[in-house]
Nucleic acid binder design. Sequence first.
DNA 1: GCCCAGGTATAAA
DNA 2: TTTATACATGGG
Length: 277
Amino acid sequence: MNISEIRNGISLKNIPNFDLSQTFDCGQCFRWEKIKNKYHGIVQGKSVTMCQNENEILIENVSLTEFENFWFDYFDLGTDYKKIGEHIAKINPVLFEAYQQCRGIRILKQDPWETLCSFIISQNNNIPRIKKIIFSLCSNFGDKIGENFSFPSAGKIATLNLDDLSPIKSGFRSKYILDSARKVANKEINFEILSNATTENARNSLMNIKGVGPKVADCVLLYGLHKLEAFPMDVWIKRVMDAFFSKESPKMFGPYAGIAQQYLYHYSRTNSEKLEI
DNA sequence: GCCCAGGTATAAA
DNA sequence: TTTATACATGGG
């Protein structure tokens, strides 16, 4: 792993388990877009461009200080995914094959409020339309950043009503968006506290929000709060496998953690025939 | 028209 | 406690 500052950004060389397309297009985030070999994202109110070739990844317009203070953790570069893969290999061959296919995914540590709001919007919805609604939410209520818009704060959304949200066409989810924004704005949901709480307590708190069930809660725990650690690996692998191979709802993984979620999701999309029971 | 989309609230059994 | 259905909207 080699991190160095170059004239217009940061160069990452030989970073294991890091593929931009797998990471950005796997469904964990909604504000990174590929345009002509480059990924453009809006993160924490900042517009950033990245590209990848061979074993080098470039992050444009970011200083070494910014990288160390924010982006290193955002991309979860302190976690050894290879070690996780080796562990998975011992547990289950199907899971390991899924890992092999998706070994380039890094679980992004995203802003908890943005994650919460985004995955509320994701329910019973498809990714293109999720992105469209989030784009609309940002352009209507976010702050302008050059050509783009920041993700609006919970405080800002909390001042709105259902009619205000009608332009983003989020349908029945609007009332859930407002409830989540109000609870975050008035600190009924306090991410500082949740990040120090047990995973179970944090999940229960999140599920007090209207429109937040186990799936949305787990996405917030994983992508917003990076809470993987509370479940022993064998426990959540088993839960993922149980949920995945039950016919009822392969997308409802229950109380698991998400590296396996991501691996299995990708595996299911590319190997659906192998998953028939 | 009909079905589905990375679910959840609600009512009914 | 478990199971069925509605929900807004848009694309295939």
